[in-house]
Simulated scan of single mutants.
Amino acid sequence: MNADPVILAVQASWAVTAVGVGLWVWGWLKAPTPIAKLRFYDTGVVLIFSAILVRIITQERALTWFDWGMVVFGPLFIGAALWRLGRTSNLDKT
């Protein structure tokens, strides 16, 4: 059995999407502080948008307007979430 890298990437992106949604849910239900909630949300955003971009890049059909929107705005959301994660990295230590 040959492992196709594209299929592996798509399957891994679905697993990462599940982890990202799990972080959103965990932040919504179980985060002890507002900063922790924000950090769970931001980490989920990074994982979900990254996984979506992987699936867009690996698809074989032509890009739709939604795909192009995700390609343009996805990295902006990822960058904003990473910036906010960096800014809040020292605020949650008690």
Rank of each mutant, 00 (worst) to 15 (best):
V10N: 09
I56L: 05
R39E: 03
N2A: 15
G69Y: 07
A31R: 01
W65G: 07
W65E: 12
A18D: 00
P75F: 00
A3I: 13
K37E: 07
A12C: 14
G22F: 08
L47D: 07
S89D: 10
A62I: 02
I7V: 15
A12M: 14
G69P: 01
G86C: 08
G69Q: 09
L76F: 13
L85K: 04
G74T: 05
D67W: 04
L85C: 03
L47F: 08
R55D: 07
I78L: 05
S89Y: 14
L29E: 05
L63T: 05
R39V: 05
E60L: 14
V6D: 10
I56T: 02
A12W: 11
P32D: 00
R39T: 02
F40L: 08
A12D: 09
A62K: 08
A9T: 04
F77E: 03
D67F: 02
G22A: 15
M70I: 11
F49D: 02
W26T: 10
V54L: 02
W65T: 11
N90E: 14
R61L: 10
T88E: 03
W68D: 05
A12S: 15
V71M: 11
I78C: 05
A62C: 03
L53T: 02
T43M: 10
P5H: 03
V16D: 06
K30V: 01
L29C: 10
T33L: 07
G74A: 01
K37N: 04
W14K: 11
W24M: 03
A12E: 09
A62H: 07
V16G: 07
A81I: 05
V6Y: 11
T88L: 13
V54K: 04
V72G: 08
L29P: 07
V10H: 02
P32H: 04
I48K: 04
W68P: 01
M70G: 10
W28R: 11
I48E: 00
T43L: 11
W68N: 12
Y41N: 04
L63S: 06
A36L: 06
A62V: 04
L53G: 02
G86N: 13
V16L: 15
S13P: 06
I7P: 08
M70E: 08
W83N: 06
I57T: 13
V19T: 06
L91F: 09
I57D: 14
Y41K: 06
F66K: 14
Q59R: 10
I57F: 15
S89I: 12
I57G: 14
T17D: 00
L8E: 10
I52W: 03
T58V: 07
